[in-house]
Design a protein around this nucleic acid. Sequence first.
DNA 1: TGAGTGACTGTAA
DNA 2: CTTACAGCCACTC
Length: 104
Amino acid sequence: MEQNFFQKVYEVARQIPYGKVTSYGAIARAIGSARSARMVGWAMNNCPDDVPAHRVLNRAGVLTGKMHFDGTNLMQQLLESEGIEVSGNQVVDFKKHFWQPPIQ
DNA sequence: TGAGTGACTGTAA
DNA sequence: CTTACAGCCACTC
């Protein structure tokens, strides 16, 4: 299988700058499948180590995938280490840290 | 081959 | 304002 979809997801996810975050929908739109936001999250389930999955959140800025990380608070700590404030499972000033991936 | 599922999103009530 | 529902695509069983 080509797995082109996954490759595109990873390619976009890798472009997320340090200290920035984006949403599944934004990535889905960037790869031309705006309605495949769920698939983006599914792709993250197989995320390679070189893909900063902790910078990918849902539209509300909530760490929906935090449970998929080894540590219960690993995702939050990674974000905080990049200068992003996290309250509980939600990012503070999400829009401020939001990064729009380039539409291909 | 068909039905079920998911790290989501947007609109409706 | 908050809560619910339906749509969506790709993948697994």
